[in-house]
C-alpha cells in the first residue's frame, strides 16, 4: 500500500474555556489516514470537532499537539516555510458553508481566476484553467454574470470552480451543502461526485446530512473529538444504536429496516439506498 495522502497522528486541539480553568478539548487523540483518490465523509453533531479538523488540514488552525502529514510532508513542523504552506493550501483546497462569504470578485470568471492569480500563473494559462473549471462545474454560460444574482447552488459551484482552478489534489467541503435548498444540494453533490470519479480528486466531505454520507466510499464519525466509527457507509450505518448515542441519525430507509428487523421481521438491516429498500420491501410483501 502506498503512503496515505493525509495522515493525522494523535491530534489535540484545545481552546481556553471562559467558564472554567480547564481547557476545552475540541480534538483529543484524533488519528486518521486518508488514501489518495478516496471519497470520505466526516460526520458528527454540532461541536464534535469536525470543522476544526478540516481547518487543521490546511493550517488555517494549528494543533496543540500531534502530527499532520500531507503527501508525506509534516505540516506541523515549526520550521515549515511560507512557500511550503502555500503549496499545502494549493494541494488541499477548501470550500466553505456560506457561498456568499467566499466569493471575492464581482464577476464569476474573475472570481474563479483569483486562486491561480495568487499562485502567479501565466495569464493565458489562467484563462485556460478558468474556462475548464467553469466547464467542469457546469457554469460556463454564467462566466460573465455577477455572483449576487446566482442561486445558492450556483454560487457554491462557482466557489468549487475557484478551487479546481488551483489544480488541487484534495478538496475539503466544510458543510458546503448546509445552507442550500434540496436542488442546490443535489447540484453540489453531483459536482463533488464527478470531481472524485473523473478527476481522481480526493474528497473530504464534512456534513451532518446522512443521505449525503451514503454516497461516500468511507464514512468517519467524529464524536467528542475522537474517531468514533470508521468504515464503509454500510458498516457505519448498521450501528444504529451507537450512532444515536453520538447524537446522530441514520438515513430513514436504514432506520425503517432496522426497526423492522428489531420487531422480528426477517429483513437485512444494512439498507442505505431508497430504491434498493423499496425493491426488497415489495419483494417481501409479495411473499
Amino acid at each position: 500500500m502506498s503512503v496515505p495522502f493525509i495522515k493525522v497522528e494523535d491530534l489535540i486541539f484545545t481552546y481556553d474555556d471562559e467558564d472554567s480553568i480547564d481547557k476545552h478539548y475540541v480534538l483529543k487523540n484524533l488519528s486518521l489516514e486518508i488514501e489518495k483518490g478516496s471519497f470520505v465523509c466526516v460526520l458528527g453533531h454540532n461541536g464534535s470537532g469536525k470543522s476544526t479538523f478540516a481547518k487543521l488540514l490546511n493550517m488555517i488552525l494549528s494543533p496543540d499537539e500531534g502530527k499532520i502529514y500531507i503527501d508525506g510532508l509534516d505540516i506541523t513542523d515549526p520550521e515549515i516555510t511560507e512557500d511550503d504552506l502555500f503549496e499545502i493550501r494549493r494541494k488541499v483546497g477548501m470550500v466553505f458553508q456560506n457561498p456568499d462569504n467566499q466569493l471575492v470578485a464581482t464577476i464569476v470568471e474573475e472570481d474563479v481566476a483569483f486562486g491561480p492569480e495568487n499562485l502567479g500563473v501565466e495569464p493565458s494559462e489562467i484563462r485556460r484553467r478558468v474556462d475548464s473549471a467553469l466547464e467542469t462545474v457546469g457554469m460556463s454560460e454564467y462566466a460573465t454574470h455577477a455572483p449576487h444574482r446566482l442561486s445558492g447552488g450556483q454560487k457554491q459551484r462557482v466557489a468549487i470552480a475557484g478551487i479546481i482552478a488551483m489544480q488541487p489534489e484534495c478538496i475539503i467541503f466544510d458543510e458546503s451543502t448546509a445552507m442550500l435548498d434540496p436542488q442546490g444540494r443535489a447540484e453540489v453533490m453531483n459536482t463533488i461526485a464527478k470531481l472524485n470519479r473523473e478527476q481522481g480528486i480526493t474528497v473530504i466531505h464534512i456534513t451532518h446530512n446522512m443521505d449525503e454520507a451514503v454516497k461516500a466510499d468511507r464514512v468517519v464519525v467524529i464524536n467528542e473529538g475522537e474517531v468514533f466509527l470508521d468504515g464503509t457507509p454500510k458498516e457505519v450505518f448498521s450501528n444504529v444504536e451507537k450512532l444515536r448515542r453520538a447524537g446522530l441519525d441514520v438515513p430513514q430507509v436504514t432506520e425503517l429496516f432496522y426497526d423492522l428487523s428489531n420487531h422480528g421481521v426477517d429483513l437485512p438491516s444494512d439498507i442505505l439506498c431508497e430504491e434498493e429498500g423499496a425493491e426488497i420491501l415489495s419483494a417481501w410483501l409479495k411473499k
Binding site: 490546511n58 488555517i60 511560507e82 502555500f86 493550501r89 494549493r90 483546497g93 477548501m94 471575492v104 470568471e109 474573475e110 481566476a113 483569483f114 486562486g115 491561480p116 492569480e117 495568487n118 499562485l119 502567479g120 500563473v121 501565466e122 495569464p123 489562467i126 484563462r127 478558468v130 475557484g162 478551487i163 488551483m166
Partner: peptide, 15 residues
C-alpha cells in the same frame, strides 16, 4: 482568501 493562497500583491499575476 487565505485558503486560496492570497498573500498580497507580490507575485500575483492577472488573467
Amino acid at each position: 482568501m487565505e485558503c486560496r493562497c492570497y498573500r498580497g500583491g507580490s507575485g500575483r499575476t492577472r488573467m
